[in-house]
Amino acid sequence: MSNLIAHWNYFLVIALMMIGFYAVIARGNMVKKMVGLTIFQTSVFMLYISMGKVANGTAPILTGDATTLYANPLPHVLILTAIVVGVATTAVGYALIIRVYESYGTIEDDELIKIIEAEENAEASNA
């Protein structure tokens, strides 16, 4: 029980990660997949930042007092850049979704596969 409380953050990070994972692999809608990916991403951020936390510590901005405890700055730096890179790559994903919709008229995985297969069959019968 004490273990559960001591690792509460980590267990819920796992729950978040799996919610995102499920959305990515089970959902056919591409926008939903992107939202799942964002949730997955944020859960990883949460894992890193939880590890950097020090009990009774403060933010890593030096106060000049030698007795102050600081949180670990390294995970903060890694995640700070990861968030901005994350939104940039997400934007590429959304851009591709828009192009897929313009070309095929759908953003559902299964419908897309049907359309592509039908096109391929048509090409094969033509040739």
């Binding site: 933010a59 901005i61 700070l80 850049t81 968030i83 901005v84």
Partner: peptide, 12 residues
């Protein structure tokens, strides 16, 4: 340099 902030946040 002195408080929370930096290029990434300011840019956004």
């Amino acid at each position: 340099d002195y408080g929370p902030g930096g290029g990434f946040q300011a840019g956004v």
